[in-house]
Amino acid sequence: MSRRHIISLLMENEAGALSRVAGLFSARAYNIESLTVAPTEDATLSRMTIVTVGSEDIIEQITKQLNKLVDVIKVMDLTEGSHIERELMLVKLRAVGADREEIKRTADIFRGNIIDVTESTYTIELTGAGSKLDAFLEAIDSASIIETVRTGASGIGRGERSLKV
């Protein structure tokens, strides 16, 4: 049975680090829904969050293969325990006439912020689990969407559960 997994990893922040991971996923035909990467508070480390879908066997192979990359320091399947997942989305919407009020109300309900305003558009910033961002897009009239940009999920374990060197 395939399930969605969020895998976090720490690796050496070196040129080409990202391509090693991306290359592994494409070479072995693993799914990749999103992948985010940035340096950590320790600039020698990169932290990556990968959202993937696969059966238990595939996910086991994915974590083993990631661990095998020489630059990878630690790998954790966040979905194996309690965790928090957040994604940032920016949405630019056509907002004219009566729609302006309606859009603002919907954004409020989803705790979104309007971060740019013109006579005809709103740009809304929204943070949450991927499912919440999906729900927002569902709630908006799709005809009014000009552009969306999503960062892909970032994740962290709850409480003492952490991924550290």
Partner: peptide
């Protein structure tokens, strides 16, 4: 070179 050989090496380095 690092790109071409990446999928068929245990590891590779570009020394800058």
């Amino acid at each position: 070179t690092v790109g071409i050989t990446r999928p068929c090496v245990k590891h590779n380095f570009l020394v800058k």
